[in-house]
Amino acid sequence: MAITGVKTLVVNAEMRNWIFVKIETDQDGLFGWGEASLNWKTRAVTGAVEDLAPLILGRDPRDIEQIVRVLKKHSYYRLGIIGATAISGIEHALWDIFGKSVGLPVWRLLGGQTRDKVRVYTHLGLGDMKSVYETFDPGALRDKALAVVEKGYDALKVVFIPYSGHSVGIGARRHVGRLMKTLREAVGDDVDIMIDFHGRPASTAVALQFIEELAPYGPMFCEEPVQPGDTEALRIVTERAGCPIASGERLVGFEEFEPLFRQNALHIIQPDLNHTGGILEGKRIAAAADQAMMGVAPHNPNGPIAGAAALHFDVATPNFVIQEEMSGAVPWYDDVVRVPMRRTGSYWAVPEAPGLGVEIDEREAAKHPFVPEVFHTKGAVLPDGTIVDW
């Protein structure tokens, strides 16, 4: 068996572009789908896939470890998030081909089943970006949270940490506390709440001041309380926080996660299988996290194939905790793609179809061509004009 073609298909899903990767083989009707979506980097990633494709033409698609090694080592320059995302999309498609070729779901090839169902959560607003990032009013927060619970979810994530510098006033801190109190009273104790800081605090002090307001209401975790890459700062926050701390969505490959394990800098890691190098790299990261007594809650606000890849990873990963998901993000979702994710309440069922279980209607997909994504960073400016992290 040999790879004969590597193509990309971009689908604009309103709030982001999905970048699908299709790998064709010399076996009649055998091909695989992957995903390499990266917000605001669509043209860069599709170009990277095109640049990497010649390295794998003619190779056996089932030699996944070897192909990923070729893509990393024969690229010469170290790959950042764009290159790693391109590789992730290619790698997903290779697993899809491998599973189809032997008639088994991908999770079987990853070591088999470790759970009977996969717990998931979604965002405030059910994927509407304005709701996710601009809900700072207690009344709107309560109503939108209840709408998520009415859809059957028993876990949701919110982003209501204000844009911050190196210090924060008591009024802003107390407003965050009021928002969390409103949210907890609205959904009750049986619904888990996650708060995404988005790396907005510019100091450990500010991060801890916000966490002090949140911790009494029992968050499942506070996510990315400081910018990625500063392991020592993250360790300080984790040691002093009164609740679980999670991070990792912007880290690339095992080498960027390794210091977190060595310094016990987190409680829960959040690799994005769409960005960190693929499913196999995710399994390496998860195994090391398990040894460090950390759970895994994969990041995934991406498209449907990324969701399918995450589902198979979750089924086969013992220290999995909960999965972020964005199914049905647009009204025509099911016209373009059929996926294996089937939700009952706040759980996905274990899929049985071969490969990733994804089918793309390329004719329908073509009705939603690339459109430049909208930047949501307008508010990331302090009153004095200082630019801060979004």
Rank of each mutant, 00 (worst) to 15 (best):
E239L: 14
A205C: 06
G5W: 00
A145W: 09
Q66K: 12
N274H: 00
G345L: 13
E91N: 00
S75R: 12
P219Y: 12
R115I: 13
L104Q: 14
L141R: 10
R59H: 14
V120T: 15
T85K: 03
R250G: 02
F210P: 04
G171F: 14
D154S: 15
V106A: 07
G385Y: 05
R284S: 03
T204M: 10
A172T: 02
G303Y: 05
A289G: 07
D230M: 08
G278M: 02
V21I: 07
R284I: 01
K41L: 01
G32I: 04
D230L: 09
R78D: 05
R174T: 00
L183W: 01
Q27Y: 11
L356V: 05
L146Q: 14
P298M: 01
L311S: 07
F136C: 08
D128K: 15
E373I: 05
Q66M: 11
N264K: 08
I97L: 04
V11I: 04
H312G: 11
Y347F: 11
V206M: 00
K283G: 02
G83R: 04
I193Q: 07
L280D: 06
I387L: 11
T114C: 11
A310Q: 12
E249I: 05
A36W: 00
Y133D: 07
I360Y: 13
E324V: 06
R59A: 08
G282E: 15
